[in-house]
Structures are given as structure tokens and as C-alpha cells.
Amino acid sequence: MTHKQGNNSEETITHFGFQNVAESEKASKVAEVFHSVAGRYDLMNDVLSGGMHRLWKRFTIELSGVRAGNKVLDIAGGTGDLTRKFSRLVGAEGQVVLADINDSMLKVGRNRLLDKGISGNVHFVQANAECLPFPDNHFDVVTIAFGLRNVTHKDTAIASMLRVLKPGGRLLVLEFSKPKNPVLSKIYDTYSFNFMPLAGKLITNDADSYRYLAESIRMHPDQETLKAMMEVAGFERVTYHNMTGGIVALHRGIKP
């Protein structure tokens, strides 16, 4: 993926993986990645995590405290793993909104859930995490799993999530993070920058997208930085749980 800088030298620059790009271009570049990999996204998740992503998501659901009658927003819900479980937990009186900025991912998620007979209490919305199209104080729980690192203005998105939560509502952010052990960190780097693009090439015929995903993980804030961002936004009792040695972290915050 290459980028040619335009003539507008005043435009704010952000990162797309390890590249510097104009902010106005980042969303479309991220969209290209997920349009490319949507059809085999679940398969790649299983291959790249050795199936561990299912355990990480299960822990997220347990910590969410979702119960019957709740309203849940699953941002960057993609192919619907979390939405499927939440749909069962909230029951007929509850509601789950699967939101994703990417139309291809949303279609895959919708088709997959419909194939499993899940429809009555689930709604699908194409939405940008930075400006969520929902009322204030609306949801009991908001989750974003492996999506925050792709957002251009993470602080804006976290503030938007706070706004749509009810007082006492919970935000859960599941995301790749920074391993605590230097040896594990080195192994993880080798794996990310060599195996991930190779697997992407073999399974989806797209090495570049998985090279970007590896780079985006490295550019994402570490555990303490993300915790501080949530606190600055207004969340209270912010905690995080490292999983698989800190390769993944689950952050949780409460709206006062």
C-alpha cells in the first residue's frame, strides 16, 4: 500500500500502520483492508490466534455483566461473534446493535447471524465510532473488540462511547496490546511481521492487509496509555486485564 501526499500541506497527518497519511485518507484505506479480508476474516482469526480469540471474547462477555433486557452496542462488531452471544443474553426484551464502519464486514456479520437464526433482537448499523448515531444515555454496555486501533481519533471515539452509555453503563475495549515479557515481545514481533503477511497471502491472497494489521497493533497505545485515555474521557474505575502475556488486553470503564 503506497501513499502519495497531496498538495494540501496543511492537512493533518496521521498513521496508517507505519505509514504517514492524510487524516482524510485513513478511513478509506482502513476500509480497503477490511473489504479485502471480510470474506475470510473468521478463518484468519482462527489461524492467526490459534483459536485464542474465542477465549478472549468469552472473557469479554463474562466481564460485561450483560443480562436480560439490556441494550448493548457492539462497535466494530464485524462478523458478529460478540453480538451472537449478547443476543442470547439480553433475550426478547433486550436489544443488540451490531455497528461497523465497513459495509463488507457488516454484510458478512448480518448474513452469518441470519444463517444462525439470530434476528429478532439484533439491529445492524453502519456507523463511525467517532460520531455514533445514537441518543445520549441509551446503552447499558458498549463493546469494541479489535477495532479501536483502526480509529483515527481514538479519544473522540471513546468520548462518543461515553455519551451513548447510560450512567453506570460499562465500556469494554478488547484490543491487541503490548506483551510484558521482552522475550515474548520479540517472538511476537517476529510472528507478526513474518507469519501474518504470509498467512494473509496464502489464505486471502492479500499480504499487504495483514502487514497493515501487524503495524496497526504496534502503533496502538499500550495498556496504561489507553487506561489514561479512558479516564480523561470521563470513565471511572478503569481497569485492564492482560491476556496471553499482554498480547491482548481487555479494558473496562464505568460511566459515572
Rank of each mutant, 00 (worst) to 15 (best):
L226P: 05
I144T: 07
K29F: 13
I247Y: 01
P135G: 03
L48W: 02
Y210Q: 14
A92C: 05
R170L: 12
K227M: 04
Q5A: 12
G39R: 13
A207G: 06
S185H: 11
F139W: 05
R252W: 02
K107Q: 15
H241R: 08
E25V: 00
Q223E: 13
E224G: 01
G91N: 05
S177D: 02
G234C: 00
P167K: 04
G253L: 06
K186R: 09
R170E: 14
M44P: 08
L250N: 09
K85H: 15
R149S: 10
T2L: 13
H123W: 10
L82C: 13
S24R: 04
I101P: 13
S216R: 06
P135K: 07
P221H: 05
P256A: 03
N45S: 08
N20D: 09
H53W: 08
G147Q: 09
E10Q: 09
F134I: 03
D155A: 06
N205K: 12
V141W: 08
M229G: 05
A159D: 00
S104T: 11
P197M: 03
K154R: 13
R67Q: 14
K180P: 00
P221G: 03
D208E: 15
E32Q: 15
M105Y: 12
Y240V: 02
E236I: 01
D136Q: 02
Q223S: 08
V108S: 11
R67L: 06
H153M: 01
M243A: 07
G51W: 02
S24D: 02
D100T: 14
K116H: 15
L98A: 12
A249G: 07
K85L: 14
I247F: 01
F235K: 02
S177V: 00
T156E: 11
I75D: 08
L171D: 12
D136A: 02
N242M: 00
N7V: 01
S87Q: 11
D74M: 14
L226W: 06
M1D: 15
Y240E: 06
R112L: 11
R211L: 15
T79V: 10
